[in-house]
C-alpha cells in the first residue's frame, strides 16, 4: 500500500470514534502497547531523539530500495503516535517518505502532538525519519 492509502485507512479507522476522545486515546494507547519494541541493545545514544519529557528511539534500515523503521518511546501516548508514523512510513521508498505530508495526523484530530513543543520529540522524530531516508538512498 502507498503512504496515502495507509493514511486513508487510519483516517477511516479513527472515524468511528467521532467526538469520543477517550475512545480515540484508548485506541492510541493500545497501538502504543502493540508497537514492536526496538531491541534493548539498539537503544543507543545515536538512536535517541530527546524530547524534553518523553524520549523516542528510532532505528532505520534499508532493504530492497525501501526504508524500514522500528522505534520505541518511554511514554505510551508518544509510543502510540510513533506506531502510527511507522505504520505509514515503514517499508516505503525513500522518496515517498521524504515527500510525505502526514496530513492524517490533523484529520484524526491528534495534531496537538505535533505542536512545536519540546515535550514529546515527535516533530524531531519525523525529521529524523526523513533525514535517515535521505542518508540511506
Amino acid at each position: 500500500m502507498s503512504i496515502k492509502e495507509i493514511e486513508n485507512e487510519i483516517i477511516e479507522e479513527f472515524e468511528i470514534f467521532g467526538e469520543d476522545w477517550e475512545g480515540k486515546y484508548e485506541h492510541l494507547i493500545d497501538l502504543g502497547k502493540s508497537l514492536p519494541l526496538i531491541k534493548e541493545e539498539s537503544k543507543t545514544e545515536d538512536k535517541l531523539i530527546q524530547g524534553c519529557q518523553s524520549r523516542v528511539w528510532l532505528n532505520s534500515e534499508k532493504k530492497d530500495d525501501k526504508i524500514f523503521f522500528s522505534a520505541d518511546s518511554d511514554a505510551i501516548i508518544t509510543k502510540g503516535m510513533v506506531a502510527l508514523m511507522i505504520r505509514v512510513l515503514s517499508g516505503q521508498p525513500a522518496k515517498e517518505i521524504i515527500d510525505s505530508k502526514l496530513e492524517f495526523i490533523n484529520k484524526i484530530g491528534l495534531k496537538e502532538h505535533l505542536s512545536p513543543t519540546r515535550a514529546n520529540g515527535l516533530v524531531s522524530m519525523i525529521n529524523r525519519m526523513k533525514m535517515d531516508a535521505i542518508k540511506l538512498i
Binding site: E22, Y25, I29, Q53, A75, I76, I77, T78, N120
Partner: peptide
C-alpha cells in the same frame, strides 16, 4: 508504571492543567 507525560496529556483533555517533566 506510567510516564508523567501520559498522565499530563490525558488530564489536559479534561481541562486540567498540570505540569509534567523534570
Amino acid at each position: 508504571n506510567a510516564h508523567p507525560f501520559d498522565v499530563g496529556t490525558l488530564l489536559d483533555k479534561y481541562g486540567i492543567a498540570v505540569r509534567t517533566g523534570h
